[in-house]
Amino acid sequence: MSTHLQHSAALVVGLCSHGLAVSRALQSGGVTVYGVEQNPDLPGAATNSIRRLFLVDSFADEQLVPALLDIRRQLSQYQQVVLFATNDNHVRCFGLQLQQLSAAFCISWADSCQAVLRLQKKSELELIARQNRLNYPKSAVLADIDSLKTQLAGFRYPVIIKPVQPLSSFKTQLAANLSELSAQLMQYSADLPILAQEYIAGGDTSLYFGALTLDHGSTVQAMAGRKLSSYPVARGQTTVAEVVDEPAVLALTEQFFAGFNLSGPVSLELKKAPDGSFWVIEPTVGRTDFWAELCIAAGFNQPLQEFQLALAQPLSIGPLNHNISWFDAERAPLSYWQAVWQQKSLRPYGKQAAFTFLRRSDLAPFFRACRNLLKRLSRKHL
């Protein structure tokens, strides 16, 4: 192990399947990894890729920040500890508390914190997309229900709604008319403000994403992917995805982030309309995306590059393997076997399969995930 790695470590906040992928990717690059989690029963909490798991009572900002600073004091043997977010709330927390946290930790995007916080706001995306000459669906931010008819005058239905704040009580909903939309807003009134958009037609396979590692705005490495399945269909979280060769997706992703001078991992989700045009859906900034394992399995080790950027080290860039598909065994545990059954092949989509939990060198998370699935199925049956 090189000298600089002996004096540095990584702290991954959250050991859901995404955090597990990040931890494993870092360890495979020779990094000493520690984890932070509030639920010790998660499959990711059983991984051998972390040296120690620190348990916290809550991920709420007011409790997480003091806990992280206390953990840093316990890791005083390291000159530098790089902090990793695994969801948008973590990114927002790190950005708002950057002064405290950056005194203790290294964060790859610290120099562009304000840009990251701005890009997190769904209410800012239409302006950013249009300034960068990209298609963006007709949109309105709804602060209340009373002015709904006025704000959406001239909108074409169906309309999709998304909470402006990350990790709210719902991800997306689709309304076929004004009456249906009004009922949905009543149901999710606690999540206001809510973004409403004209829905771009197309199923799961019309959803693409570009993943980049940036160094002060310059692309270090890039990969394009496509959703094959999501939940809810065509508007939810990715459950199956594949690497694709789509230069247009990468060009549009770079175009969207141009001018922000960002460092670290970013991605942009795009939807291909029936006429072949691409439309911006949403970016991810300050962290890798939920499907990071797809990139990692393809040879694009974004977490390791994020670590190296935070420490101003030379970046590890490997060849990209386009022959990879990824199956989310956390949200859709049977997705691989469903694809095998439908396509009558152990290589669905003709590609090598990567999985959320299964790894020969780290089997404990897989067995725990199987145990948890059996418990859920048993409760459902009972």
Rank of each mutant, 00 (worst) to 15 (best):
L214K: 10
T32P: 04
A9F: 05
F257L: 11
A298C: 14
Y136D: 06
E198S: 09
K162I: 05
V244Y: 11
A273T: 00
L11P: 09
D61H: 14
T219N: 06
S316I: 03
F355D: 07
Q63R: 13
L195A: 00
L134S: 12
Q99P: 08
D61L: 14
P333N: 05
P163A: 10
V141P: 01
L55C: 08
R130V: 02
Q27M: 11
A234S: 15
A196D: 04
A251G: 07
K227W: 04
R73F: 02
H18Y: 10
R235H: 04
S108M: 12
E37G: 13
Q151G: 00
L68I: 06
G225W: 11
T47W: 15
V280D: 01
D144R: 12
L214G: 03
R72S: 11
V116F: 13
V36P: 15
L311I: 06
P333M: 11
C113D: 05
R379P: 09
P265Y: 10
L192P: 07
S58Y: 10
F300G: 02
S23E: 05
Y78S: 01
A312F: 08
G276V: 10
F357W: 15
E306K: 13
H322G: 00
K380P: 14
Q221D: 00
C113N: 12
T284V: 12
Q120I: 00
L152A: 13
L212A: 02
F155Q: 03
Y336V: 04
P303D: 01
G286Y: 09
Q302F: 06
Q237F: 12
P163G: 05
Q77L: 12
D362F: 02
F170P: 01
A196H: 13
N39P: 08
L382C: 03
R360S: 00
L346K: 03
F257G: 14
V240K: 07
C106W: 10
L20Q: 07
V340P: 10
N321Y: 07
Q77R: 15
H18P: 01
L11R: 02
Y136H: 14
E254S: 14
V22S: 04
I160N: 04
S229M: 05
L207V: 15
L11G: 03
F355P: 00
E293Y: 05
R359C: 03
F94Y: 10
I200K: 12
A115V: 00
N321P: 02
L96H: 11
L262I: 04
L83K: 01
Q100M: 12
R359N: 06
G236K: 11
Q74W: 14
S147R: 13
A129E: 04
Q221Y: 12
Q338H: 09
N48P: 07
Y199D: 05
P274T: 00
G154T: 09
K344M: 03
F256L: 05
V31W: 12
G95L: 14
E37R: 02
K344N: 13
K138M: 10
S378A: 14
L294H: 02
A369T: 01
L228S: 05
A312V: 01
A312T: 04
G30A: 14
D57Q: 12
V22M: 09
I194D: 07
E180R: 03
Q79N: 08
T205N: 14
H18I: 02
G264K: 10
V31T: 01
L270P: 08
A140L: 06
M223G: 00
P43K: 05
Q38A: 07
G29Y: 11
N135I: 02
F256T: 01
L252Y: 15
F290S: 07
G236F: 13
L75A: 10
C106M: 11
L64E: 01
